[in-house]
């Protein structure tokens, strides 16, 4: 429980850094840290498979993609960002604090009556696979189609319009 609590604080700090850091690359790296800490959290409470998948997909693919597109676009709006800080903070808090209040209220209402913690239910990999490919087979197929479409779509989007293509250059 103490370890869980410490980890929670670390996740919060990393997420806060990802949201608030003015340097885009630092924010992206802190996002990677926050996602990795999420994976550690999953490993810690017994969801080993999910934790490893989370690490592989989020740290290995999503965070690297984000960092890579930051490298390509090279945003340089740090000073501007810091200058807008006071105004931003006010508006942001005004919009998000009610949401946080509602969520925390719901959690606190629920936590009093919530079920008591038990031993970690183990995920047998075989069971997970069986359920995934029988009960949820249509969903797996749909995700497969989606991912294929995304791969082709992303490749088409990211393609540099070549000389042969009919797209005219910037006016």
């Amino acid at each position: 429980m103490i370890a869980l609590f410490l980890l929670t604080i670390l996740v919060l700090l990393a997420a806060l850094g990802a949201v608030w850091n003015a340097r885009p690359v630092h924010a992206a790296l802190l996002l990677a840290l926050a996602l990795a800490l999420h994976a550690v959290l999953y490993l810690m409470i017994g969801a080993h498979f999910i934790g490893l998948v989370q690490f592989m997909v989020y740290v290995g693919a999503v965070a690297v993609l984000i960092v890579f597109s930051l490298l390509i676009t090279r945003p340089r709006d740090e000073e501007e960002e810091i200058a807008r800080r006071p105004r931003t903070l006010g508006v942001g808090l005004l919009c998000t604090l009610p949401v946080l209040g509602v969520l925390l209220h719901a959690v606190s209402r629920f936590a009093d009556t919530g079920p008591v913690a038990t031993d970690a239910p183990a995920i047998s990999l075989e069971r997970l696979g069986t359920i995934l490919y029988t009960t949820h087979a249509p969903a797996v197929l749909a995700v497969a189609v989606l991912l294929t479409a995304v791969m082709i779509g992303a490749a088409l989007f990211a393609r540099e319009p070549g000389k042969k293509s009919s797209v005219s250059p910037d006016p």
Binding site: L4, I45, L104, V116
Partner: peptide
Amino acid sequence: TPLALLLTL
């Protein structure tokens, strides 16, 4: 409880 902690997080 751990559940409440994780939900708060």
